[in-house]
Amino acid sequence: MMWPSSQASKILTLLLFLVLLYCLYMDTFLFLRIQNYKIDLFDVVENATESSTKSDGVAVNYEDVTWVPCSINPLCHPTVKGLMVDHINHYIYAPLCSMLDLGLKISENLLFLTPNMISFSHVIIACIGAKLLTCQNLAARRIAIVLFQIRMFLDDLDGHVARERKHIKGERSEVGTMGYWVDGLCDMLGVIAMMVGILLYLKNNPPRRGYKGTSVTSLPYHQLKEINSSEDIEKDHTTEIGISYKTKVTFQRIVQVLGLFSGQMVLSSLAWNRYIDIYQELLENSAEYDILRRQAAFKSGIFFSATSLWRVVNPHSYLHLLSLAVFCDKTWGFLKIVHYSGYVCLVIAVGTSEYLVQNIRSFVLNGAG
């Protein structure tokens, strides 16, 4: 291990607590920012600026009152995609990308470095990380997780550079463009690399089933305990009340569990991108719809709550949670917990979004809803 497990636990617990507080803080201020200040995406429609200002009830822009420069402030330019991006990417990686871009002048001076080149570079990093994930040594797997987080950071950076060079404010998906498909392909390759690395590790170091009690033959199957932690395996199994590990989890079972989790990733990605596209079309791109109604729908608490669901169940969130599980050497336990339950969360998010899409469409078209 890279450091004593007790110290690692304390550091991780403190870090997770601080990140959780930070994300809740930012979510709260994002909602207040949307409610109390003008949203610039509704001021791009010709002759609509005056109406938008009146409906907001304020005469100032958020940029005029915030002490954090909008060049690095993730709250300045709220968009549909910005409301649906996971917390880590939106509140941590996005500002870091902006600061890196400001420092190195990537968007302005390093024109030879294209967004697609950045996308391809993080595929290479993912392949290196996947190789390290297969190692039995926990330190190597933790280095792999660091590399995969760098991959996700670069995934943010390619989009940031592309938007800066096109002078686009806020997070947006340019569906159908070459950059959109290249970014999606590179993301897919990176995720596949991670799944393959985890699969090979579990194949070579299969979790074990343990029988708790004084007699392994006297206990029913449902009392089996599956583990993959080397620390647990080394427990004393000779005591009368100890755990005696006898059976390894089959490779077929490993493939089944990891396959179900990968299926969630695929469905989550398809649904997440679908609703970003639909919401953008309804609220951002279709100028023929009434701007006041679009703005009212965007600023509603129901819309904010529905999009917040996708912050939790989008594919990037799944990857962050999986990365944490691997780092803590709890990969198999995490996969077992979510390989079915994750589908429930996904169904709730999809059902909520479908209901909301119908209501928003009716509202922006004729005011119904």
Score class of each variant (00 low, 15 high):
Leu14Tyr: 09
Leu18Pro: 07
Leu21Asn: 14
Tyr22Phe: 08
Tyr25Gly: 00
Asp27Gln: 10
Leu30Asn: 10
Leu32Thr: 06
Arg33Gln: 13
Ile34His: 02
Asn36Tyr: 12
Asn36Thr: 08
Tyr37Lys: 10
Asp40Ala: 09
Leu41Tyr: 13
Phe42Trp: 09
Glu46Thr: 11
Asn47Met: 12
Ser51Gln: 14
Thr53Ala: 13
Lys54Arg: 15
Val58Gln: 10
Val58Met: 09
Ala59Ile: 15
Ala59Glu: 15
Val60Pro: 01
Glu63Met: 09
Glu63Thr: 14
Asp64Val: 05
Val65Asn: 06
Trp67Cys: 08
Pro69Leu: 02
Cys70Thr: 11
Pro74Asn: 03
Pro74Lys: 00
Pro74Arg: 01
Leu75Cys: 03
His77Gly: 03
His77Cys: 09
Pro78Lys: 04
Pro78Tyr: 00
Thr79Arg: 06
Thr79Tyr: 00
Lys81Cys: 12
Gly82His: 03
Leu83Gly: 08
Val85Met: 14
Asp86Arg: 09
Asp86Asn: 14
Asn89Asp: 15
Tyr91Ser: 13
Tyr91Leu: 11
Ile92Met: 08
Pro95Phe: 00
Cys97Ile: 02
Ser98Glu: 02
Ser98Met: 00
Leu100Gly: 00
Leu100Thr: 07
Asp101Trp: 01
Gly103Arg: 02
Lys105Pro: 05
Ile106Lys: 00
Glu108Ala: 14
Asn109Gln: 13
Leu110Thr: 06
Phe112Ile: 11
Leu113Glu: 02
Leu113Ser: 03
Asn116Cys: 06
Met117Gln: 06
Ser119Tyr: 03
Ser121Leu: 11
Ser121Asp: 05
Ile124Asn: 10
Ala126Met: 09
Ala126Ile: 07
Ala130Tyr: 05
Lys131Asp: 07
Leu132Thr: 05
Leu133His: 07
Thr134His: 06
Leu138Gly: 10
Ala139Asp: 12
Ala140Gln: 12
Arg141Ile: 04
